[in-house]
Design a protein around this nucleic acid. Sequence first.
DNA 1: CGGTATCCCTAATGATACTG
DNA 2: CAGTATCATTAGGGATACCG
Lengths: 131, 131
Amino acid sequence: MNVTKEAQNLENTDCQKISQVLARVGEKWSILIIMLLNSGPRRFTEIRRAINGISQRMLTLCLRGLERDGLVKRTVYSVMPPRVEYELTPLGQSLTEPVIALGTWAREHIEEIDVARAAFDEAMNTPKART
Amino acid sequence: MNVTKEAQNLENTDCQKISQVLARVGEKWSILIIMLLNSGPRRFTEIRRAINGISQRMLTLCLRGLERDGLVKRTVYSVMPPRVEYELTPLGQSLTEPVIALGTWAREHIEEIDVARAAFDEAMNTPKART
DNA sequence: CGGTATCCCTAATGATACTG
DNA sequence: CAGTATCATTAGGGATACCG
């Protein structure tokens, strides 16, 4: 889980920290939720409807994780029926910057990746190709 | 898996793409491998020793995934004993930039996150706190 | 050395039902 | 509405053994 001094650019502990953050950001739904909330507060069901395919359970767990890390703020309005709003904290907002940078990279290189994948998969189907 | 137009900053397809990339980058070991290879080519066993705790199986799978996406190049030297070197492709190298940006964010905010986590966990142990 | 193949166990996730 | 609880299924990943 640690990288030795061989990884000259980063310290061991740095890698651990980065891994922790990337693990959260890399979670299938986290990034989508963060980007959705980047455009303003949303209610639980709004988020659920906006993100196609997420189960109620996973949305709850994911929001809890983001809330725990201080990236998302959960506000409960004690009315009937209940109303709960989620919004990015300043910390969460600051995270959108590097995330968008990564997203930009993804957009710029996704075709290149697709080509690489196709080439790799084809090579797999052509056993001779793998010397 | 899609975000509706509610997420004004990004298109549906963008989010899918970003998710794909983040899923790979977010994988527990990928980021460590990428950062390790950022300092130069490494042999299979070198990587394995450098990254504490990764199993041979997972290293193989992870490297295959990175290779498939065109981020890592695998070179086999047909000698005895076998020698296989892994290095970042230009695409892989370009990825280190936004990843390092995210890493920088992680380093700058990890304490804030730790505090948030501690506060959240304490609130959990004080049921009254969650109204 | 650098893998692949197999078994096995656990953690993650979906589906469903129920509640303040 | 916004959850929680439970069950069932599956995917992730470790351990081990074997191969070119």
